[in-house]
């Protein structure tokens, strides 16, 4: 443990990751619901989600509910383990 993961070590992305980590394995959360839970603007949330997706931490699934498209999000196995390593590192730092 030398450095904190720069992808998660940003308060907005940490909150997104922490929120998605509470989902049961195999579950996805709709973008509007995540936005409401985090109280973030759609633009801000999208920006941070893209960084998490680029790092391979978040999986983005596009689905259709009737005619309207819905985006679902979930942590990948890599994202979940990065979150666990990150929180363990913080706890270790704090002794």
């Amino acid at each position: 443990m030398d450095e904190l993961d720069p992808v998660i070590h940003a308060s907005a992305r940490l909150r997104i990751t922490a929120a998605l980590a509470t989902l049961a394995a195999g579950d996805r959360l709709a973008f509007p619901r995540l936005q409401q839970l985090l109280e973030m603007t759609p633009g801000n949330l999208s920006t941070h989600l893209r960084k998490l997706e680029d790092a391979g931490y978040v999986e983005v699934t596009k689905a259709h509910q009737g005619r309207s498209p819905v985006t679902y999000l979930n942590l990948t196995a890599r994202g979940r383990s990065a979150f666990e390593v990150y929180t363990a590192s913080l706890k270790k730092l704090l002794g």
Binding site: E3, P6, L14, A18, A19, A21, L37
Partner: peptide, 27 residues
């Protein structure tokens, strides 16, 4: 940490850990 957005990285480890706990308890 290099590569961290400066507006986002100002929090201490205690605050970051609290952020995780708060967000998860909201969920």
């Amino acid at each position: 940490v290099a590569g961290v957005d400066h507006d986002e990285s100002a929090l201490s480890p205690e605050q970051m850990l609290k952020l995780v706990d708060d967000q998860q308890s909201v969920m």
